[in-house]
Design a protein around this nucleic acid. Structure first.
Lengths: 231, 231
DNA sequence: TAGGAGTCGATACACTGTATCGACAGAGGC
DNA sequence: GCCTCTGTCGATACAGTGTATCGACTCCTA
């Protein structure tokens, strides 16, 4: 029983549909569009494929695994980052930091990928090369010092980007349900502090100037750069 | 037609089974056991419930959402961290850092949660209190300086823990498929460097002493602490 | 023109988080 | 003591996921 209908009712097969032409680049672009709009959770192979007018399995010709797609997305973010500038090593380091930060704020999902698995994509390598070159040109030519500076800065950036994005998301979420946030968590914290179990913490929350994520970003960057300089 | 079989065949209903008693603590412990063994992906409500001899929906009496369960798990990690010690502010900061690092290496999945969403659980608050108290006792009593130090350190730690765990995972993965790793990525990197497109990077990879993740951790921590001290 | 090889992607599977709602236990009125 | 009502609980079901499989189809070769 090869078919459940008679030929008169059965539609003609689609003429080997000139299929929407695919490419890794197109796929990654579609995935990034989805992620920018609705976060990394909105990136499913099915949705990406649908955005490209294709079936899910079609993507597997271009990518072996969803993780590979995510790796391509992360690499594409590195491709957006301009080469760092600056004449002193400190300026170069700050420029690197801001390049990554700006990219991550354009693509918040990047924070979820960043530092997760070691990435070796071409754009990532090119970015690393540009950083090393700029540091070299700034006079930081001891190889060990340069590597140490890059490594520690990159570690710091993983955390900084993650925290700043987390704060933005919390803010935005509380913008949507501002009422819910303010009626639940704000008072919750106040109540916890009011118990008196957290005197030093409370003192700090109430007394210290509240730092935004971007102020913390700069402050930590300053500490790091100054710490490196003091060697 | 209340039943599709006659009474003789129909099994007796289970006697309102004295159900395995549950509690948030028990649930969180089961989830942590799963996560420690097989990573965060292995934590599904079904598996946690099964480990407790219950149906999935039973957990929803104790937790509204899977995210809440993850938040409880993260808070439980903070509960394990001993209060920081040290007489100078620098020593206290290092002690805080190592406390978090050690906990994260015991529970690698913590790196995936850490810094993701702002956590306000009781153990997290208690940990923060202990940190502030220790810093206060060490003489760092300017509130703004203390808050700045805590914030920037905590940002650094998010990245440091994430990177170190990522390296461990990569190592372990390559330990299992060491052959695969060495035959794929190692040579891949060599080939990329051999193209000559990444001269400064290659110079660094070949010439600089290779730092392990834990060395990077200490180095960045030193930079940070020294940078703070130089204010 | 017939046959064989290789590609492609629809179907299917095992699994996820969680909404729904029927079945049940216990309380309260007669 | 029985019967209804009420509120709780968790099995079932749903909509979604990533991806293995394998039949159908195209295209190349003879």
């Amino acid at each position: 029983m090869p078919n459940e209908s008679v030929i008169w009712e059965r539609p003609e097969p689609p003429e080997r549909q000139a299929p929407s032409p695919l490419s890794r680049e197109r796929i990654v672009r579609a995935a990034i569009t989805l992620a920018d709009a609705d976060g990394l959770d909105a990136v499913s192979l099915r949705k990406v494929a649908a955005a490209l007018d294709a079936g899910p399995m079609r993507l597997y010709r271009y990518v072996d695994t969803k993780d590979e797609l995510l790796a391509l997305m992360a690499d594409a973010v590195y491709a957006e980052i301009p080469a760092p500038t600056g004449s002193t090593a400190g300026d170069v380091l700050r420029s690197i930091a801001h390049g990554i930060r700006d990219a991550a704020l354009r693509h918040e999902w990047f924070a979820d990928l960043h530092g997760g698995r070691p990435q070796l994509g071409p754009a990532t390598l090119a970015h690393a090369e540009a950083c090393h070159a700029a540091l070299h040109a700034s006079g930081l030519d001891d190889l060990d010092a340069r590597a140490g500076a890059m490594e520690t800065l990159s570690v710091y950036l993983v955390g900084a980007v993650r925290k700043e994005v987390a704060e933005r998301r919390a803010e935005r979420a509380s913008g949507l349900d501002k009422e819910q946030w303010q009626h639940t968590f704000g008072p919750y914290l106040q109540r916890m502090l009011a118990t008196g179990h957290y005197p030093r913490l409370g003192e700090s929350v109430r007394g210290a100037r509240h730092l935004t994520a971007s102020e913390v970003f700069e402050l930590g960057l300053d500490y790091l750069v100054e710490g490196m300089a003091s060697r």
